[in-house]
Simulated assay, not measured.
Amino acid sequence: MFRFGNPEYLWLFVAMPVLLALYIFLNIKKRNDVKKLGVLSTLKKMMPELSLKRSYLKFWLIFAALCVGIVMTARPQFGTKVETVEKEGIELVIAIDVSNSMLARDVSPDRLSRAKQILSRLIDVRRNDKIALIVFAGEAFVQMPLTSDTQSAKIFLNSIDPSLVPVQGTAVADAIGLGVSSFSTDKEVDKAIVLITDGEDHQGNALKAAQQAAEAGIMVNVVGIGSAEGSPVPTSAYSNSFMTDNEGNVVVSRLNEQMCIETAQSGKGLYVLADNTSTAIRALETQLDGLETKSSTSLSYSEYDEKFPLFGWVLLTLLVVEILIYDKKNPLFKNIKLFK
């Protein structure tokens, strides 16, 4: 992938055609001024050391250097950067409901998109933690194993949609059980699960699974998303048509807040209701801040690596070559016909 860190500097390229036009204008003016002194062919014989081609080349080298300098200032970034970093945090498993009911729009823009926004901010805040991602609907799957690379976690998070889990439903118990097995065996670091769902548990056993997690020393926090009034479930993320049952009635999904609250209580964690404010995420951050952390060293992968040093070397090379080329022919190399 490729991007510019400061793309606003690319507007400087607007000035380059103006500079080129000014150079052409001045050269035409200079040529007309020289013609007033006599015939050009005769004047060239009177100044054998003068080389117009050298002058032209020096200008184009400066012009190219300016272009490279603008690109360098805009900070081109591409490729992947790997760093060894030391972090002190907890182990955190994020389980996100991707059932079709998460497409309901009683939370703006819809439940799933809002859930991603909340989790993206949580990952930013918990950048020192080891994080795993689990997606679940009728089944649960590990989307990303436990890692310190929080940037990769955000990339995986952005790719989440209901198509990842073909079996529909809301298997909360399966998600909690898979989350428990996703942690390391390190007993010196605290562990927590953050479950974000609308609570429509079609399989049951969520309370028992949360209780078992708590007995294993793993806190289960639940973020409820949706409303008690509910909302029709779209057939797809961008569709204005809605799902219907076997009798042709529009399917309405409602937040099962009671189930979410009881699951959090069984897991000795916190329940928060997600809305269009940042209240829920702040409460969750405070809850996780109270857990015991541990220092660890790991590799961190950045999606973008700075490449401006490469352009800096190109710029330096162009300037050095421009300096080494004289406007006049060098007597030491007068027999070398590079510029005829």
Rank of each mutant, 00 (worst) to 15 (best):
Gly217Tyr: 11
Thr244His: 06
Asp33Phe: 14
Ala173Gly: 04
Thr293Arg: 15
Ile118Asn: 13
Val82Ile: 13
Gly38Arg: 11
Val222His: 11
Ile193Asp: 00
Ser51Leu: 03
Leu66Gln: 11
Phe242Leu: 02
Thr170Lys: 11
Arg282Ala: 04
Glu88Ala: 09
Ser236His: 12
Val251Ile: 14
Ile118Thr: 15
Ser239Gly: 02
Thr277Cys: 08
Gly226Arg: 05
Glu292Asp: 07
Ile134Gln: 00
Ile218Gly: 05
Gly269Leu: 06
Lys36Ala: 13
Leu19Val: 15
Ala153Cys: 08
Asp190Thr: 06
Ala206Phe: 11
Asp129Val: 06
Phe25Asn: 07
Ala137Val: 02
Gln287Tyr: 05
Thr277Lys: 11
Asp289His: 12
Gln117Ile: 10
Gly199Gln: 12
Met243Ser: 00
Asp190Ala: 14
Phe63Met: 12
Thr80Leu: 11
Ser41Val: 02
Ser55Asp: 13
Ile118Gly: 10
Pro232Thr: 09
Gln287Ala: 15
Leu157Ala: 06
Lys36Ile: 01
Glu91His: 06
Gly79Met: 01
Asp245Arg: 10
Glu83Cys: 07
Val14Lys: 09
Ile218Arg: 13
Gln77Pro: 07
Trp60Gly: 10
Asn221Asp: 13
Thr286Leu: 08
Ile160Trp: 09
Leu164Tyr: 04
Asn6Phe: 13
Lys130Ile: 00
Leu316Cys: 09
Gly5Phe: 03
Leu133Ala: 00
Val223Ser: 06
Leu57Met: 09
Leu284Arg: 12
Pro162Arg: 10
Lys81Pro: 13
Ala153Thr: 03
Glu88Ile: 05
Phe59Glu: 07
Thr147His: 00
Ser227Thr: 15
Pro162Asp: 00
Pro7Lys: 09
Trp11Val: 04
Asp124Thr: 11
Phe339Gly: 05
Lys45Ser: 11
Leu316Gly: 10
Leu133Lys: 06
Gly312Thr: 06
Val252Asp: 05
Asn158Phe: 00
Ser296Phe: 15
Pro76Asn: 07
Thr244Ala: 02
Leu103Glu: 01
Pro232Ala: 00
Asp161Pro: 02
Lys30Asp: 07
Phe78Cys: 11
Ser148Gln: 00
Pro234Arg: 12
Gly204Pro: 13
Asp129Phe: 15
Gly5Asn: 02
Asp201Gln: 05
Phe333Gly: 00
Ser227Glu: 05
Leu315Thr: 08
Met243Glu: 10
Leu12Lys: 09
Val71Trp: 13
Lys36Tyr: 03
Cys67Glu: 07
Phe25Gln: 08
Ile176Pro: 07
Gly138Cys: 09
Lys81Val: 01
Trp11Phe: 08
Arg282Leu: 12
Ala264Cys: 01
Val135Asn: 01
Arg114Val: 06
Gly69Cys: 14
Ala213Gly: 13
Ile281Glu: 08
Val220Gln: 08
Asn221Pro: 14
Ala132Gln: 04
Asp275Tyr: 01
Glu285Phe: 02
Ala210Thr: 03
Gly177Gln: 03
Leu178Asn: 08
Arg282Met: 05
Lys337Tyr: 03
Asp97Met: 05
Ser302Lys: 09
Met16Gly: 08
Ser184Val: 01
Leu316Gln: 08
Ala216Arg: 10
Lys130Ser: 13
Pro166Met: 01
Val142Gln: 06
Phe78Asp: 12
Phe25Ile: 06
Leu40Ala: 11
Pro48Ile: 03
Lys58Ala: 09
Phe4Ile: 04
Glu229Val: 02
Val167Cys: 01
Leu164Lys: 10
Val18Ile: 15
Val34Asn: 11
Glu292Cys: 06
Leu122Tyr: 06
Ala283Cys: 05
Asp124Arg: 13
Lys337Met: 07
Leu195Thr: 05
